[in-house]
């Protein structure tokens, strides 16, 4: 992939996201007063560009090593047996296992001070929209994406059969951060909704709603929260740089007191 192709692909992706989400944010706003060019817009845009241009290569490199390391532990016969199941059964197994892992890993990110150092970057966004979804420390991304991949690596699920579903899930992960309040009724119990994830980003919070997409794990483990209004404010209480490089460096700074 040449540099010009990478830049073109990134530009088209941003255009697609704007065309997809901006009308929804205008027509069904969660916060009507929030503008497109809101505070920290450029910081979040840098996070997006970092993910597209730099960090996806780093994540792939880390995953390749992770997978190579796991290959030594899982018998090939076991993987063959798993891959011989019907695709829909594999899909259900992979989704349930991934959601289970992500749910508990995400709870750890909020409880373990070392993990919170990285994850707090994502929660530092004070304005949620489709762009703020990209505010993630690259090492936090490796942690999360490694766990999403873990069932596939261990069990040998052929991911090409799930490519469409995974694409949907990625886009939905952006949607739940968008400045949209679009009540989808009981469907939110299955695929999640922005109104749920906004409460996860509540500044005055006892987080809750830890599940990646579907809130089933939250319902199962008693962390599901869905008040009928939007939170007062988003963000975190601890001081953090407003700038991209400052936020990338934040986890490595000396912390007087870690608090999640």
């Amino acid at each position: 992939m040449t540099l010009s192709t990478i830049i073109l692909s990134t530009g088209l992706s941003i255009l697609f996201l704007v065309v997809l989400f901006r009308p929804l944010e205008k027509l069904f706003p969660a916060r009507e007063a929030q503008k497109f060019m809101r505070p920290a817009f450029w910081t979040d845009l840098f996070f997006l560009l970092g993910q597209y241009l730099l960090w996806s290569g780093l994540v792939f490199w880390a995953l390749s090593h992770f997978r190579g390391w796991l290959d030594g532990f899982v018998p090939q016969n076991f993987r063959t047996a798993v891959a011989a199941q019907s695709w829909w059964l594999q899909a259900i197994e992979m989704i349930v296992l991934s959601d289970f892992l992500i749910y508990w890993a995400h709870r750890l990110q909020h409880k373990v001070p070392f993990l919170w150092r990285f994850h707090s970057i994502h929660h530092s966004a004070e304005h949620l929209d489709w762009l703020a979804a990209h505010r993630e420390h690259p090492l936090d991304t490796i942690y999360t994406v490694g766990l999403i991949n873990l069932p596939a690596f261990i069990l040998g699920f052929p991911l090409e059969t799930l490519a469409g579903f995974l694409a949907f899930r990625g886009l939905w992960a952006i949607f739940i951060h968008s400045n949209v309040r679009l009540p989808i009724g009981p469907l939110r119990m299955i695929i999640g909704a922005p109104e749920l994830h906004h409460w996860h980003h509540d500044k005055a919070r006892d987080a809750g709603n830890y599940a990646n997409i579907s809130p089933l794990m939250d319902i199962l483990f008693g962390t599901y929260r869905c008040p009928d209004h939007e939170p007062e404010a988003f963000g975190i209480h601890e001081p953090i740089s407003k700038h991209y490089l400052g936020q990338l460096w934040h986890p490595f700074r000396r912390h007087k007191k870690d608090a999640a």
């Binding site: 088209l12 996806s56 991304t141 994406v145 991911l159 694409a167």
Partner: peptide, 24 residues
């Protein structure tokens, strides 16, 4: 790190949940 016994054609990774031009 490559395992020579690993099955061909299964080199798929979910790169990022939010990089939409490379979901898988």
């Amino acid at each position: 790190i490559e395992n020579p016994t690993k099955p061909p054609g299964n080199d798929l990774h979910i790169i990022s949940s939010k990089v939409i031009n490379q979901p898988v």
